[in-house]
Amino acid sequence: MRLPETAAVLALRHAVRQWAGRYRPGGAAVAVALSGGADSLALTAAARAEYAVVHALVVDHGLQDGSDRVAATAAETAYALGCCSARVLPVRVGGPGGMEAAARTARYTALEAARGDMPVLLGHTLDDQAETVLLGLGRGSGARSIQGMAPYDEPWGRPLLEIRRGTTREFCADLGLTPYEDPHNLSPEFTRVRLRTEVLPLLEDVLGGGAALALARTAGQLREDNAVLDELAVELLGRAGPGAALDCAVLAAGAPAIRRRAVRAWLLDQRVPAVTGAHLRRIDELVVAWRGQGGVAVGGGERGTRLVVVREHGRLALARADRVSRNRRETS
């Protein structure tokens, strides 16, 4: 596909080409998650210029009147840009965590089911990265929560993490494309919208500009640091295990940051669905501040049973909550 050689077009094409060369060398086909907004529209056009085969996946969340028409228009635009296919994926949004979280879950589930063996390119920009870092800082969950989004977290690819949102709009204008303006992107009931429209502009003003760039750069540095810490945690986990129980003496000899990462990796290996910072701090007390305290509930097991991390005979182990309660009754 031949595109005009404007600054915005060249910036996006270079970003997609650089991403492809690093993460998908020789890849013949990609899917692009297309909402019709400026970011995903520009990404679709840039990907079409760099890849021989591009398939567009358009998720219709059904949250607004006329969302089906918006999705159909996005699919038509994808064909006009030269995509090999454009599929509209209707989803039902519902479940715990509020509408933002539920919509995200429904979207990623639909994209995963439709992608086949292709990676899916997402239109997240540097501005989205900065907002993600601020959200992580607000949660206070440690370095992992403020490392932002990875350029490639298989199967999800994000070639535009160094591209500003304004550049994608320039790209669309250069091609004569009219992006869809989602009213939810201006609704103050969503935390991310308030970060975008209130917090980040204030930071830019107070710090004299460059706040979004600095936040995104911090995310990149933390991802590099976290990768090293994760490698050390894997090594510690190998010495403390391997298996369903971990040696507390071996864990206690490790640095706190490495020890907690090792425990987190162990829990994920044991199929514990969600591991929080609060879980890890309390489990760490079982390792280094053992006073005979009870176990730490960490979530659900099979068929809704609750799982608890307990310390038994100097080792951490997972047990069902009913077994822990029964043992207490028998020893009381």
Rank of each mutant, 00 (worst) to 15 (best):
A11Q: 06
L34I: 10
A262N: 09
V324P: 04
G277T: 14
G37P: 01
R192L: 00
E302S: 12
T6L: 08
A20P: 02
E285N: 09
L63V: 07
A216D: 03
L251Y: 12
R320C: 00
L222F: 10
T305S: 11
I163K: 06
E224S: 14
V206D: 06
E5R: 13
L137W: 13
R311L: 11
G301D: 14
G142K: 04
V53C: 10
G26V: 06
T331D: 08
V250C: 07
G314L: 15
Y23E: 06
R320E: 12
A102D: 08
T167Y: 02
A173M: 04
E231T: 14
R328Q: 15
P96M: 03
L3V: 04
A7N: 07
L137C: 13
A28D: 14
H14M: 07
I146S: 09
D284N: 08
Q147Y: 00
R48E: 01
V199C: 11
T168E: 05
V30K: 01
A33W: 00
D127C: 03
S85W: 10
R139N: 08
T125A: 10
E285G: 09
Q64S: 10
D205V: 05
A253S: 15
P4I: 12
E100Y: 05
T109I: 01
V30Y: 02
Q147D: 02
V234C: 08
H55E: 15
H184T: 06
F190D: 11
E76A: 13
G166A: 15
G166Y: 14
E231D: 15
A216N: 05
T73E: 13
V228H: 15
A214S: 13
Y51Q: 04
R164H: 11
L34T: 04
E330S: 13
